[in-house]
Simulated scan of single mutants.
Amino acid sequence: MAGHPDAAEMRERYARMTEGRRAEMLEGLVMMTGLYMAISPWVIHFHQGNTNLTVNNLILGIALAAIGLGLAMVPERAMGLGWLLVPLGIWMIISPWVVSAGHGERAGVVINNVVIGAVATALGLAIMAMMGKRREGRRTRTATAMR
């Protein structure tokens, strides 16, 4: 098999396929994080006390789940949206203080949003890192093909 003329091309194609799949495995984590973010006001039971924070978590959770769905459906195009997870995550971390505007949130609400925000930020950074590796791999393949 090593002497087959297409062996190198097949190895390269297999490497590209498995590399892309690692990046796409994050899609489920992004979707689950978004869905949890959307339902967290009812899980942590702060939906009655602070409707602004409830709406904030619901809208951002749906947006995050939509990005995860995009990653699952069209990963080539949606990969570019991975950077959005970083500002969304940072907003989730600071939102209990900004949105509540001095209402004084319970520790559980703050911890919930900080953890969700940290997870979303970490996922965004992981997707961005994988995008960088994918671009670098494309540049290398293009340079090799031009020779």
Rank of each mutant, 00 (worst) to 15 (best):
R139V: 15
M92P: 06
A23P: 01
G61Q: 00
N112M: 03
R135P: 02
W97D: 09
G108L: 08
A63M: 09
L29N: 04
R11Y: 02
I93K: 10
M10R: 14
Y14H: 10
Y36F: 15
G49N: 12
M73Y: 05
A129L: 09
A120T: 15
I62V: 15
R21G: 02
W83D: 02
R21H: 08
L53Y: 11
V110Y: 10
M32G: 10
V119K: 07
A72K: 14
R11E: 08
E27N: 07
I111F: 12
V86R: 11
R77G: 07
V110S: 12
M32F: 09
Y14I: 14
A66P: 00
T54I: 10
G34N: 02
G102E: 09
S40D: 06
L58R: 07
R106D: 12
E76N: 13
E27F: 05
V119A: 10
I111T: 15
L125P: 03
G49I: 14
E24L: 05
W83Q: 09
N52M: 10
T54N: 08
A38S: 09
A101R: 13
I116K: 01
T140A: 12
A15C: 01
W97S: 13
V115C: 08
G82D: 06
V30N: 08
G20N: 11
R135K: 13
R21P: 00
L29D: 04
L84E: 05
R16I: 03
P96C: 10
L81Y: 13
W83I: 14
R138E: 14
V99C: 01
V109D: 02
P41E: 01
I44R: 11
R139F: 02
V109P: 06
W97M: 09
I111M: 11
A78H: 06
I67C: 01
V98S: 02
T33H: 04
Y14L: 14
V109T: 15
E27M: 08
V114H: 01
V99L: 03
